[in-house]
Design a protein around this nucleic acid. Structure first.
Lengths: 335, 335
DNA sequence: TTAATAAATGTAAACGTTTACATTATGAAG
DNA sequence: CTTCATAATGTAAACGTTTACATTTATTAA
């Protein structure tokens, strides 16, 4: 494989030192116009591009033009929206993106965190594994620029974070169910260790309490945030002697799994069982039936997270900001 | 921000030269056991990790342990499967992954290709923008390790590639429609420049011809491979004076869009209009109605692509391999 | 003309690794 | 006790940039 052209190649062709070439690229007004144009012509001719690895090694933190992005589950369309938001922002500012999916595995998260660090990213956007995420907190304490999305870090407050009012979103959804006359409402959450799973449960509980419905613990279940567990838990719930008449599902994938089980059980939605999902999807309207869902602005979250990270990098001493966006309850036909 | 420990830090603490530390890590049997354990203790203690950027700069191609992955649309669940396959393989071999989504934009593709090159990846897995993709072909000609997934490069044959028999998959789907009595069958393809859009159309045409149904060009449409265009085109198709009784959609997102339009039109599926989608989704069964679809083994494609890339890197002179996997037609209730 | 200033360019160090080569210490064989 | 091989370690160059500093050249002011 032929080796790529580098500064030396260009310098030799232009009969100047590599420093001049470097300057021609980074500080064009610091080099003589005629030299500049000669260099530029050569660069174009041989299609020279600076080696980012060498650049990153030399340049100090904050100006390497690369972000890290670490999401828990790329199969979840919500995170895909977040990714797109981050990516669009990065592209617009000419940042590269080192994007990793830790697939809800603590080991993978640790490994990717290490890779990102040792890839010398300027900063990263992370949806932490859980609220105690030691690795992330360590990084923050060392002063590494990080913004959290979707999930916070419990008591640890010195961090930029953008998320959604999960409790309120859940509260509204469950309130709607109650308004429609449901009393036996189940909640299927994701991994219990994930903050959002708990917050959404809290919203669910509040709504029941507010309406004087006693909490039935056998209707509150947690899975692993994936399709299969939604399916399995819904199946069990529906085969209870006294099954719920409504199910509030804690994320996208769980919703889809639950939907599958409800259909398999032969029950009609919403007549026999109602369902509202946390997280809307572009195709929710094409589901059977069109799904009533709590929409999170994933794309916006991603975009703003990237901007927060950028600001943090540019001014490491600025105050931490917490942004909490609202969800929207989209009523369709599943409740 | 405190600076990370490096070889020098460890060397100083262990009272040896950085070369010895480096050897302790890379060739443990080349250093004295007592020195080794001393060094290892220190490494663990201060949690030293080699700087991948510096490593990559030094180490020559093929052993830098980083792959690039370039997909056309991360919103399309098919590519998400491919990504997962590649990622699992990479993780198992301790490779990092520079993952980029060019969102069906030629400009972005070019930029990401450049970034990957200048990030010095060992090789990359790419679903090219179209079959003429000059940038990708250039890279190949320079001997850069690349494997193509999902889409080929037209006449350019010197490349490893793994994809699915699109024509056959489409042929089977449309044949099923015909068997069910449909004569006016529409095809909504993705971007016409994408090879798969054409191959799936070819399968569609073949099935019609085989059954002596005359091709009606007004029923063959191409969009931009996204949800919106599926929706829009389906809407127009359905409002024709003589609308199709069946629609074969050329990808995931188009299917979802078309589904939305069909529902909006008030037509019943499959009584009024049948639909079969290319690409199955985990939640196809939860759609309204459960979707009949052509399944591509995305995860396997990703996994095998990664392995092909690995093999290519390890042995640059091996013969090129083309792998064509079969699709499976999954009959549910939409046709 | 000369001295001072500004503009253009060059030189070399630094970033954190790996590795060819040189050096030293260790032990075995004669 | 040499002599030689081997093991352990060190030295320094290299990877491709950026940049502080030094040098050269051109320009201006006196």
């Amino acid at each position: 494989m032929k080796s790529e052209p580098n500064l030396k190649t260009v310098a030799k062709m232009a009969n100047v030192s590599i420093a001049t070439v470097s300057r021609a690229i980074n500080y064009p007004d610091k080099v003589d116009p005629s030299t500049l144009s000669r260099i530029n012509k050569i660069i174009k001719e041989i299609n020279y591009r600076p080696n980012r690895v060498a650049q990153r090694l030399r340049i100090k933190g904050g100006h390497r033009k690369i972000f890290g992005l670490l999401v828990p589950d790329i199969q979840n369309p919500f995170y895909v929206d977040v990714i797109r938001g981050v990516e669009d922002y990065a592209y617009s500012r000419n940042y590269a993106l080192l994007m990793c999916n830790f697939a809800q595995s603590k080991d993978k998260e640790t490994m990717y965190l290490n890779i990102m660090k040792s890839e010398s990213v300027d900063g990263m956007i992370v949806a932490p594994y859980d609220e105690f995420d030691k690795e992330v907190i360590d990084l923050l304490q060392k002063g590494f620029p990080i913004v959290c999305v979707d999930r916070g870090l419990g008591d640890y407050q010195d961090v930029d974070i953008i998320l959604v009012d999960n409790e309120k979103g859940a509260y509204e959804a469950v309130s709607l169910m109650i308004k429609k006359g449901h009393k036996r409402i189940a909640y299927i959450g994701g991994l219990p260790s994930i903050p959002t799973s708990q917050q959404r449960k809290d919203g669910y509980v509040k709504a029941l309490q507010k309406n004087n419905i006693t909490i039935d613990d056998s209707l509150i279940k947690f899975g692993d945030s994936k399709h299969e567990s939604g399916k399995e838990i819904a199946r069990k719930l529906l085969s209870l002697k006294n099954p719920p008449t409504a199910i509030f599902t804690g994320n996208n994938l769980i919703t889809l799994g639950a939907l599958e089980s409800i259909h398999a059980s032969g029950k009609k939605i919403p007549q026999d069982v109602a369902i509202i999902g946390f997280d809307d999807m572009p195709w929710s309207i094409s589901l059977n039936p069109p799904l009533t869902a709590v929409r999170q602005p994933g794309y916006e979250i991603g975009k703003r997270a990237a901007d927060m990270l950028y600001q943090r990098i540019m001014d490491p001493d600025r105050a931490y900001s917490k942004v909490m966006l609202n969800t929207i309850l989209i009523e369709r036909n599943s409740c």
